[in-house]
Design a protein around this nucleic acid. Sequence first.
DNA 1: AGAGCACTGATCC
DNA 2: GGATCAGTGCTCT
Length: 105
Amino acid sequence: MKESFNGRVYKNLKKVPAGFVTTYKELAKSLNTKAYQAVGNALRNNPYAPIVPCHRVVKSDGTIGGFNGKTSGNEIGKKIKLLLSEGVIVKNNKIANFDKIIYKF
DNA sequence: AGAGCACTGATCC
DNA sequence: GGATCAGTGCTCT
């Protein structure tokens, strides 16, 4: 695939520093689109695998979203731990200090 | 061309 | 406060 909406998502997401998270809303908005699902959809395919910190993207409420056990397998739980390792406090599948680590474009 | 999706906002109970 | 409906744009089959 070439650069597309998908690539833009990947690029923007890569811009988010470790220890910070972003929301589908802000991300989609940054892409000049309202298709929040398209963002998640692009990440679901994740053609840019480990380069794209999909786990660093959460819902606008600060909830983790899908990568929590609803997706392919159980590797998702590891992502939560990775977030914790990065300094992101995740509590009950929600970002505890969400308001403080939310990265806005 | 058609269906699905890792969402969100609004509405209904 | 939680559950459901509708809308949205993009990717995959």
